[in-house]
Design a protein around this nucleic acid. Structure first.
Length: 284
DNA sequence: AATGCTCGCAACCGCGTCCCG
DNA sequence: GCGGGACGCGGTTGCGAGCAT
């Protein structure tokens, strides 16, 4: 989908003598030209491609356009609860290492994940008046957001896209390996509070050493499903050999509600939030 | 209907790293 | 070891869409 924006063509002052460089939104013709050249010559050598294709773009711009938009396996549409869960978890572990996080979300680009974090997650942090990198916010995510996403995954399995993520089986993202470090979001107490409005059995994480024979895995049990939330994400590259399932979801009620879950739940009361985090510390 | 504001996202920019001669 | 070009990453910006007033 090309946004219907007015295309502005500018000349780069430093390269004025050579040729005009276009900036701004890509046109359909440019997209087609780029697709044609990449499919026939392959990725890489972006500067050379930019020149020989006739595109009045920098190689950098061509690369970005291809990787973030035109590449066939780029997944469009909103992030599923499971993908959001992965982002929260991986960001807690790696911080703003967007490309590293994107490695574990097949079809999602670092740019998309970065935008999601800035527009959705940081928005919630602002509303709570805490820093998005603070321990308090991590606590809030752990106590409120993740249980809620887990609820959604349970209630709407079709939204969680397990086949494209680590939730499907122990052979997906990670190999099984021993690890000792802890996940900031999950491993602290290895179980979650029920979300505030949860009317049913709440998903819980159990330490693998207590519940299963999978080293380095968290066994997520719910009333209707189970999956392994594998912790040893940090070392091994994702297995992307499996086909990516396209989940081209349009904006739905679920998504709209998701955008405001936090303020709905906390109802603007920071005090209430702190109260719940204290309860969580007790380990209910 | 007009205007202003906010949000989401595509694209740009600067900088660091890698690779090759 | 050094310099330059290519590439990749993370931060930032600009703009259209949609909502509120």
């Amino acid at each position: 989908m090309i946004k219907d924006r007015q295309v502005r063509s500018t000349s780069n002052s430093s390269n004025e003598d050579s040729f005009d460089l276009r900036k701004g939104p890509w046109t359909l013709e440019e997209d087609n030209l780029l697709i044609h050249h990449v499919t026939s010559h392959g990725e890489g050598h972006w500067n050379a491609l930019a020149k020989c294709s006739g595109l009045k773009r920098t190689g950098k711009s061509c690369r970005l356009r291809w990787l973030n938009y035109l590449k066939p396996d780029v997944k469009r549409g909103n992030l599923s609860p499971h993908e959001q869960l992965l982002i929260l978890e991986l960001h807690a572990k790696w911080g703003n290492r967007w490309s590293k996080i994107a490695e574990h979300l097949p079809g999602r680009t670092d740019n998309e994940i970065k935008n999601y974090w800035r527009t959705r997650v940081q928005k919630q942090a602002r509303q709570l008046k805490v820093d998005s990198n603070s321990r308090e916010f991590l606590e809030a995510i752990r106590s409120f957001w993740i249980p809620r996403l887990l609820d959604k995954m349970e209630q709407c399995p079709s939204l969680s896209s397990p086949s494209s993520s680590s939730c499907s089986s122990s052979s997906t993202i990670l190999g099984k390996q021993n690890f000792t470090s802890s996940s900031p979001l999950i491993n602290q107490q290895q179980q979650y509070l029920p979300s505030l409005n949860s009317k049913q059995e709440s998903p819980r994480f159990y330490s693998s050493e207590n519940s299963t024979s999978f080293n380095g895995c968290y066994h997520l049990e719910t009333s209707s499903s189970s999956c392994y939330f594998e912790e040893s994400l940090r070392e091994q590259p994702a297995d992307f050999s499996a086909p990516v399932e396209s989940q081209d979801m349009s904006m739905s009620e679920y998504e709209m509600a998701e955008a405001n879950w936090f303020t709905d739940q906390v109802a603007g009361s920071i005090d209430e939030f702190w109260q719940f985090t204290k309860i969580d510390d007790v380990g209910i």
